[in-house]
Amino acid sequence: MTDHNTRRVTSADVARLAGVSRATVSYVLNETPGQTISISTRGRVLDAAARLGYAPSAAARTLRTGRSDVVLCLLPDWPIGPEVGLMLASLSTALARHGLTLVVHPGNQEDRPITEIWKAITPAVVIAYADFSEGEVAAMHAAGVELVVALLGRGAQRGRHELGLPQQLVGCRQAAHLAATGHTSIGYAYPDDDRLRIFAEPRLAGVRDECQERNLAGPAIETVPLDAIQAADSVRRWHAQGVTGVCAYNDEVALAVLAGVRELGLRAPGDLAVIGVDDIPSARLAAPPLTTVTTDQAAQAAYLSATVLAAISGHPGPAVPSAELIQLVRRESA
């Protein structure tokens, strides 16, 4: 049974077990420069801390260093699939190399007000996918949250940094590949989950821009549920309009389009070419294997981490490494 009266282990406990002063414990665990502490003493302190399960107080560390080491990522209310999970894992690793800790909060502001979330943690950085209001930005800065980042913001705000992940470029790459393989009339398979609009709209805009740039017909937009029968209705309408290639919002929607193609007794890419986004594991197992556009999550995480670090230190952020981030994976569907 858990003892609810068990107190938190302190640096005094570590000092007592190691036979040193609390100052020595602080110097060792915080790797304070300029201290002449022997290897054996350092070893005793680290061993004692490990045996006691001692974890330094984040609040105390914030007071000592002048800033938090927490980066708070507020996720919108959208499904957390393999690509999002990989992005968060990569970003967590990249930030950890610089002594920063990533804390992720999924959901939306209706679940819990944004002020309650960041006030409970007081991070150094807040990353979100949507814009903050001017009031929210001012309140965070007043509380010492120096950096506020919008990944898919809609415009510059005082004290907020835009990262501008190139979702529009994803759509451009899709349409450019279809154009390069001879398609002149393009369709777009839009997701039926409204929570995905934050990604779907810029991707669709990229497809639209590429079609205009190359004088292609379209995009003819169909909302495609993850259902073969309903997807077949969209395929039927695309055929009636002369569409020969479809850019899908992501691989799951692309797989639904392929299912709709089979439902009508048609073949891809002969009757309808299909290209997705994300390169999920099942994409290579599709019939036919799915051509897709993918984001290099390790490169994206390095870019996000570098942007955060540059802003914390007051330096200009890096340019978006678009060429490295977005890659085409050629398979048989398009």
Rank of each mutant, 00 (worst) to 15 (best):
M1S: 13
V9L: 09
V14L: 12
A15V: 13
A15T: 11
S26Y: 08
T32Q: 11
Q35N: 10
I37Y: 10
R42I: 09
V45L: 10
L46R: 15
A48D: 06
A50E: 09
L52V: 12
G53F: 11
Y54M: 00
A58L: 14
L72H: 06
L74Q: 07
P76G: 05
D77M: 08
V84W: 02
G85R: 11
L91I: 05
G99I: 07
H105I: 14
V126Q: 03
E136P: 03
V145P: 07
V145I: 14
E146A: 14
V148I: 14
V149R: 00
V149G: 00
G153H: 00
A156H: 12
L165C: 04
P166T: 01
L169E: 02
Q174C: 02
L178H: 04
A179R: 10
S185A: 14
I186K: 06
A189I: 05
L196T: 08
I198S: 09
P202E: 01
A205C: 03
R208N: 08
D209G: 06
E210L: 04
D227E: 10
A232N: 04
D233C: 08
S234M: 00
S234K: 02
V235P: 06
W238D: 00
H239Q: 15
Q241N: 13
C247M: 02
N250R: 06
D251A: 09
L255S: 08
A256G: 04
A259C: 13
G260V: 04
E263P: 00
G265D: 04
L266A: 04
A286D: 05
A286S: 12
T292E: 04
T295K: 07
A298T: 10
Q300W: 09
Y303P: 05
T307N: 03
A311F: 11
A311S: 14
S313V: 06
P318V: 08
P318N: 07
L325E: 04
I326A: 00
I326R: 03
L328H: 06
R331S: 11
